[in-house]
Design a protein around this nucleic acid. Structure first.
Lengths: 156, 156
DNA sequence: GGGTATTAATTGCCTATAGCATTGATTGCA
DNA sequence: TGCAATCAATGCTATAGGCAATTAATACCC
């Protein structure tokens, strides 16, 4: 195996490709197992609010990598289901602050829990040695990738 | 580190979680780098046709995990851009067979190539030892997950 | 202080995706 | 032949995304 930077190890690339399929499938499954009927886009919105706290609409849109109108209408739908709240700011009456309701937070918690269960189940199917290996490998890969900006992160 | 099957190693679960974020981001980026302006759903359709050959509409819909009307309209749009062709079957004039055009195949090839470049770049940023470790870990994870049925595979 | 520029959100209009229910065409079978 | 099953297409609804234009509020400048 050479260290040729580009053509490096078609074999390794294949492994990553296969692994990524498996992992994406896990992420998607953890969403479809939810009680409430939540779309991926809606879930992403809730996750951003959960991890960053209440946001004004424009910032939320930037975090999600969508335009303000799109984010606004998303919040309309989520507010209709009482998963987020919208409040006009007092200091600057132009901005609207979007916040997670308890029901919204529950959904994020439940999805994360579900996801962890799936992953733990999969890892449990590996012999401990390979389990550690798998985790170390994934961690290495994640580090090499660097921080994924939220705007590029599909949120799953 | 215990072998407790379920609560197994919150640490490992975290690693997988982080790795999956990184990998999904790679998949998405490889799509947005395409020349033609292709949505994820459209790309999934092209991938199914590329890997399974021409399909009748109902089967294509099943592979994609969508309903026949959805698949049909997707093919309308792709056919309008000449990325797929639709042909009435002669034997059974009820069925419409969807096939990839050369232009459609080009898109699939280009996206795959792009994806491999991104992954190779990331792997190149790791010391060779960790590189092998990462690949082995992902492979192990993929094996433990088992085959992902196409209907559950988001196609990225 | 008053006018203007900027910023934030909203609204209108368009496309794409997805589902359900219905309809139309074709084929298979009794 | 006639009826049931199959396959695709259509009509309608909802979600999700974008751009352009509009409205409301604030900031800045003279």
């Amino acid at each position: 195996m050479q260290e040729s930077p580009e053509s490096a190890d078609a074999d390794l690339v294949d492994a990553v490709l296969t692994g990524s399929r498996a992992m994406i499938a896990v992420a998607v499954r953890s969403l479809s197992g939810l009680a409430e009927d939540i779309t991926l886009a809606q879930y992403r919105t809730l996750v951003v609010l959960a991890s960053r706290g209440p946001q004004k609409l424009a910032d939320l849109a930037a975090c999600l990598g969508v335009t303000p109108p799109t984010a606004g209408r998303m919040c309309d739908r989520l507010a209709r289901r009482e998963l987020v709240g919208r409040h006009r700011e007092e200091d600057d009456r132009r901005v609207v602050r979007i916040s997670l309701t308890p029901a919204g937070r529950d959904i994020v918690d439940e999805a994360t829990r579900q996801r962890r269960v799936y992953i733990a189940e999969i890892l449990a199917g590996l012999p401990p040695a390979r389990r550690r290996e798998a985790a170390a490998g994934l961690r290495a890969f994640a580090e090499a990738t660097g921080e994924v900006p939220d705007s590029e992160w599909p949120g799953v």
